[in-house]
């Protein structure tokens, strides 16, 4: 198999299959969660649960307060850097935008490639930092399961292979790009059945948490 054949297969059946698996998995998981429902709160409510829920979806993007930020400083800083880097790379690199455009028929302007490249490095370095913390910090090592490391690896690989292919390192571009898409395919397949699913469910979780608190008049 040549690099071109491999790339073509990945761009064609490979990524389509992974996408099918991904979307099926995500829909499955979301239905599974939402269908379990929440029983109606019969207490005399002090505020609107849905308003508070929506509010919490937004407010949880920031740490609860300065002391919480201070207590978990490395986790929060590295976490932000990683997520911002990942967001920029996924949604603001022109080739990626074209991919979304081919599916959703809407596009948006991308960032200059060297800027995206910089964010890739930011994401990669912060992910290494997070991994280092996971293995070296007693608390995180205790909490971590195989799934945590698997999720880390399948997230790290697309970033790494994307970086390598952009810089034409290690392998010919067709191969590297093919491997990049393969790593994304792997991520997509694994995504719905691991904690990676949090990218979708955190909105539900925050909503419920905010609603439960908001009905009691607690603003978060």
């Amino acid at each position: 198999m040549s690099g071109a054949e491999f790339l073509l297969w990945m761009r064609g059946p490979g990524i389509s299959f992974a996408a099918l698996f991904f979307i099926a998995g995500v829909v499955l998981r979301l239905i599974e969660i939402l269908m379990l429902g929440r029983t109606k709160n019969l207490a005399e409510l002090r505020g609107s649960g849905s308003t508070a829920g929506m509010r919490t979806i937004a407010t949880r993007f920031l740490p609860a307060d300065a002391n919480t930020f201070r207590r978990s400083l490395p986790t929060i800083v590295l976490g932000y850097l990683f997520h911002i880097g990942l967001f920029v790379v996924i949604f603001l690199l022109t080739p990626h935008i074209k991919l979304f455009q081919s599916v959703f028929h809407i596009g948006w302007p991308g960032l200059p490639t060297p800027v995206v490249d910089f964010f890739t490095v930011v994401a990669l370095v912060s992910m290494l930092g997070l991994l280092w913390r996971r293995v070296s910090n007693r608390l995180l090592r205790f909490l971590s399961t195989g799934e945590d490391y698997l999720s880390w690896a399948v997230t790290f690989m697309p970033l790494l292979t994307g970086y390598l292919s952009y810089h034409h390192l290690l392998l010919p571009y067709s191969w590297m790009l093919g491997i990049h898409i393969l790593s994304v395919a792997l991520l997509l397949v694994i995504f719905p059945f691991t904690k990676l699913m949090h990218s979708f469910t955190l909105f539900i979780a925050r909503y419920y948490n905010g609603a439960i608190a908001g009905e009691k008049g607690v603003q978060q």
């Binding site: 986790t75 608390l139 399961t145 945590d148 904690k195 419920y208």
Partner: peptide, 18 residues
Amino acid sequence: DGPVAAFFSSCVHCGMCA
């Protein structure tokens, strides 16, 4: 229920709750 399922699905083992 829904909240429980959403909460378990979302945990990334970041350790901030500790």
